[in-house]
Computed example of a mutant assay.
Amino acid sequence: MHILATEGLTKRFPTVTAVDQLTVTVGPGVTGLVGANGAGKSTLIKILLGLLPPSGGTARVLDLDVTSQGAGIRRLVGYMPEHECLPPDVSATELVVHLAQMSGLPRTAARERAADVLRHVGLAEERYRPIGGYSTGMKQRVKLAQALVHDPKVVFLDEPTNGLDPRGRDEMLALVRRIGTEFGISVVVTSHLLGELERICDHVVVIDAGRLLRSSAIGEFTQSTQTVTVEVDEGMEALAARLSETGHTVSPQGRLLVVQVRGPETYDAVRDAAADLDLCLIRLEQGRHRIEDVFREEVAHV
């Protein structure tokens, strides 16, 4: 079953086309929606939630039509918005309980569920304090908690690491991954920081100016390349010279040496050269594409 599917989906505003003939399907798991700021990610999510009518095409979430069954979609889907939206004068517990009740949970069940999700996102000790005194990271966790409180089948997380320091980003990404792996809730997470999604997603959808550039499993983005990266303690120049003598194409990159792989014999050649030159081999690693590389390649061809 598809979590969502669009066909020719388009959204035009008076001065810009935010989503342009988008046709894509997304299955269960953790899916990254990648694009630069202004690429149409937030607009797409609002359409999928039934909050913004499309100008053309169709879209379905959990097999419900976004134009006629928006309320049904929102009962089954959690949404963490990008923008600042939390009331400063209430506690996290009050807010999350209130939103759980709005989603249809009885008050007792809402309080129990709110306590569970706030503990899950790391706010067990702070949940009774007014949100206005929270740090940016704590506010992001409250937004995540309210998206989970009604036990949705899918959550849409719009730039969940915005404004966070490196440690906060790592912790938020770990939470997002746990949602998909331990709790069985499918996740659609947007980000313009491509490296983040590479760490947590099963599938990535790349859009630019509202158009689909690529939709692939993460393994297809980060497939092996025909290079091997070599790092030695000292003697990189000598190693490069020796490998060149054996007919290999080598290129220095800072403290690293990138060697074109001709076949299994390349690894043997690196090992033998390092041994003959009495070098300390620190790293021998097959090169891999990164999402950033693929994104640049796709944009260059548009």
Rank of each mutant, 00 (worst) to 15 (best):
V187F: 03
D233E: 14
V232I: 06
R242Y: 10
S251H: 15
A174W: 01
A273W: 04
K153M: 07
E231R: 15
S251R: 14
L243T: 11
T227L: 05
D151I: 04
P160L: 06
L239F: 04
N162D: 03
L277M: 06
I200V: 12
S251A: 13
V232P: 04
I185H: 05
E234I: 15
A145L: 14
V188R: 00
R177S: 07
V149W: 03
V230G: 06
I207S: 00
T161Y: 01
E220N: 08
A209I: 10
K153V: 11
V155Q: 00
T181V: 10
D170I: 12
E237V: 12
R271Q: 14
G254L: 09
F221V: 13
F183V: 07
G263R: 09
V270T: 01
S215R: 11
R214F: 12
Q223R: 15
P160K: 14
E171M: 03
L175H: 04
I207D: 05
E220I: 09
G210F: 10
L148Y: 02
G247C: 01
P166M: 05
D272K: 02
T266Q: 03
V189D: 05
A269W: 01
V204P: 05
R242E: 14
Y267T: 02
V149F: 10
S216P: 00
G254H: 03
G263F: 13
D268V: 11
L193R: 06
Q253H: 15
G247T: 11
G235K: 13
